[in-house]
């Protein structure tokens, strides 16, 4: 009998893809371990690490007390001593309790020590709104983190990136922060059976178009793609760029697209003022001003804490109709 054909793709979810990435890294490198609140016996607050403690044990799937600064700093110290920790913070809001360690130690130690020490760890956390978790669990502060020299900031939006970015991040000699949008964990789809490490340098063009460029990342990628589809129905073809990495930004991919389409709209779940969208907009102005045919547009979250009530939460976030409106605004009155 001929052997059964090996399936080319597997049905999976974003959550399972992240879990598989952790499992793969743990198997390949004994210095990798996962540490965070409820990552072990509970299985992870978003169930990402469910089942891993049975395979790897409590030393390497290490439940930590509610001490974000303490265990994040411990991850940094362990990395400086040669381990490769994956620190999980439940949400970006809680990461602020560890900001001292992330900024004052992890991001500075290589430069400040004259390249004698580095902190090669990965810090993963959930970000974003949409689950009615209100103003202390729903913010999108990855743009803040992208302000900090010395760290890398990743925002996987696809199954391939959820599966593939972690290993590449663990090979980096410097700290890498990975932001997983909470609305993506349940996203299901097909992933290549042999999916593995991916680059973390380049933005990706997820849809090709000639009329304008939509620039986004993370959970907003899917809204931007929906908006592009709606625009196509009106004969407007959008390039959709998935930034993938917020620091360092891939200016080359952004500018190549904007120079071709001559119009840009940035979609960012962070607040508008002082946001990563502001940074990208300014870079476009600095590098491609003379090629623009319209002011750069932005769709961001409302300048308010994210509220609990469903209709208010939805109104606070970038949504497809607002992206379509902003896109059409760059095309002028019709």
């Amino acid at each position: 009998m001929p052997p059964e054909p090996i399936p080319q793709t597997l049905e999976t979810t974003y959550r399972e893809a992240v879990r598989e990435a952790i499992r793969d890294a743990m198997r390949r490198d004994p210095s990798v371990f996962l540490m965070g609140e409820d990552v072990g016996r509970y299985g992870g607050c978003y169930a990402v690490s469910k089942g891993l403690i049975a395979e790897f044990g409590p030393e390497r799937i290490r439940d930590a007390p509610l001490s974000e600064s303490g265990f994040t700093g411990a991850g940094i110290g362990a990395a400086m001593a040669g381990m490769r920790p994956i620190v999980e913070l439940m949400t970006v809001n809680f990461s602020l309790l560890a900001l001292d360690q992330i900024l004052n130690t992890a991001a500075t130690v290589r430069h400040m020590s004259g390249n004698q020490f580095g902190a090669p760890l990965v810090i993963r956390m959930a970000t974003g709104a949409g689950r009615q978790l209100a103003a202390q669990h729903s913010h999108s502060l990855e743009g803040w983190y992208a302000h900090i020299p010395g760290i890398r900031v990743l925002a996987p939006a696809t199954l391939e990136d959820a599966r593939g970015m972690l290993w590449t991040a663990l090979q980096e000699p410097d700290p890498v922060l990975i932001f997983e949008n909470v609305m993506l964990y349940n996203m299901a789809g097909q992933l290549a059976a042999g999916a593995g490490a991916v680059d973390i340098e380049r933005a990706a063009v997820r849809r090709q178009g000639r009329d304008l460029t939509l620039i986004t990342y993370g959970g907003s990628l899917w809204k931007a793609l929906d908006a592009a589809q709606a625009l196509a129905a009106d004969g407007i073809e959008a390039d959709v760029i998935d930034l993938r990495t917020l620091r360092p930004l891939d200016d080359a991919t952004i500018m190549a697209s904007v120079r071709r389409t001559r119009r840009a709209v940035i979609v960012d779940e962070g607040w508008r003022s002082g946001s990563i969208s502001a940074e990208i907009g300014m870079r476009i102005v600095e590098q491609a001003f003379w090629e623009l045919d319209a002011p750069v547009g932005r769709v961001c979250s409302a300048e308010a804490p994210i509220p609990y009530a469903r209709h208010l939460e939805m109104a606070a976030l970038p949504q497809v109709p607002a992206i379509v409106r902003a896109a059409k605004a760059t095309l002028g009155p019709t």
């Binding site: 303490g70 110290g77 990395a79």
Partner: peptide, 19 residues
């Protein structure tokens, strides 16, 4: 950073402990 070195020392020791 006053107190900032303490978590770091825990991590350095954790690495030695795990190995």
């Amino acid at each position: 950073i006053v107190g900032g070195g303490l978590p770091l020392s825990v991590g350095l020791a954790l690495a030695d402990h795990m190995r």
